[in-house]
């Protein structure tokens, strides 16, 4: 069991500015939840608290049944800026977490090979990150997280730094992985379409101080309308049910952005 629970979480930073207010959100075991919200609403801070990089000023963040006190390999993070080790090869980057867990050498090699195959980077095992394109680097970062077989995956705008075409490929890839091998995922994005395409539920946040404004159930629609029978992202995005959900979330977010202009 590896749920994520935000229990009345508030967060203010140094100057006392309130960033997050009364965040209540449950991500169930093996559920994929995306958080969307205007820039600066504190959505990344939510993820950082689940990761153990930041801590709530009030309330609690629980993973499983225990409060988060520090980062750890049970909660693998995929960063927006990839955050690969530039001095390590693809293999060494993916392998580090397994070495830290003292996984035996043979098993390590096998799991790294599986992970490299999963992200389709065979032949690049001994390349350094700077020799790879942005999309390839982010695939390595995803493999580095998946190889740990973590209970929880935390993804902070993982496709934000990619060009549009690469992003689409990566989104399809992530859906494939998520269906193949479901994990508890918290996914931060400002892309509404991405959120609807990937997530079981989408949490919409208000502008600062961020609160959860609304949680939209996508999964029931996806199953009812058989989205997964379409393999291509553009076919799913053309479906009326998809457009309906997207527009709903879009409008809800738009109210927040309009509010911010006053």
């Amino acid at each position: 069991m590896s749920s994520i629970r935000f229990d009345a979480v508030g967060k203010s930073f140094g100057g006392g500015v309130l960033t997050l207010q009364d965040i209540n959100l449950d991500v169930a075991d093996k559920e994929f939840v995306a958080i969307v919200g205007p820039s600066g609403c504190g959505k990344t801070t939510c993820l950082r608290m689940a990761a153990g990089f930041d801590f709530p000023t009030s309330g609690r963040v629980l993973v499983g049944n225990s409060e988060v006190t520090k980062p750890g390999p049970d909660r693998a993070v995929v960063f927006q800026q990839f955050a690969l080790f530039p001095w390590k090869t693809v293999t060494e980057n993916i392998e580090l977490g397994l070495r830290n867990k003292s996984v035996a050498r043979d098993e390590r090699k096998a799991r790294v090979a599986d992970a490299v195959a999963m992200i389709g980077l065979g032949g690049y095992e001994n390349s350094y990150p700077h020799q790879l394109s942005g999309g390839m680097q982010q695939r390595v970062a995803i493999a580095r997280a998946y190889v740990l077989d973590p209970q929880v995956l935390l993804m902070d705008e993982p496709f934000g730094a990619l060009d549009a075409q690469t992003r689409v490929v990566m989104q399809e890839e992530l859906v494939r992985l998520a269906r193949l091998n479901p994990r508890t995922v918290l996914f931060i994005t400002h892309g509404v379409e991405e959120a609807v395409y990937l997530a079981d539920r989408v949490a919409i946040m208000t502008r600062r101080p961020g609160r959860i404004k609304e949680i939209v159930d996508v999964k029931s629609v996806r199953i009812a309308e058989r989205w997964d029978s379409h393999s291509r992202i553009e076919d799913v995005m053309d479906l009326e049910s998809f457009v309906h959900l997207r527009t709903h979330i879009w409008k809800s977010l738009r109210e927040e952005k309009a509010g911010a202009d006053h």
């Binding site: 980062p71 390999p73 693998a76 955050a83 080790f85 830290n100 867990k101």
Partner: peptide, 17 residues
């Protein structure tokens, strides 16, 4: 870069390593 250091912590890297 800070994310690189955070990635190492997230992966549970022991101190001397």
């Amino acid at each position: 870069e800070r994310p690189v250091i955070e990635a190492a912590r997230m992966l549970g890297t022991p101190r001397w390593r």
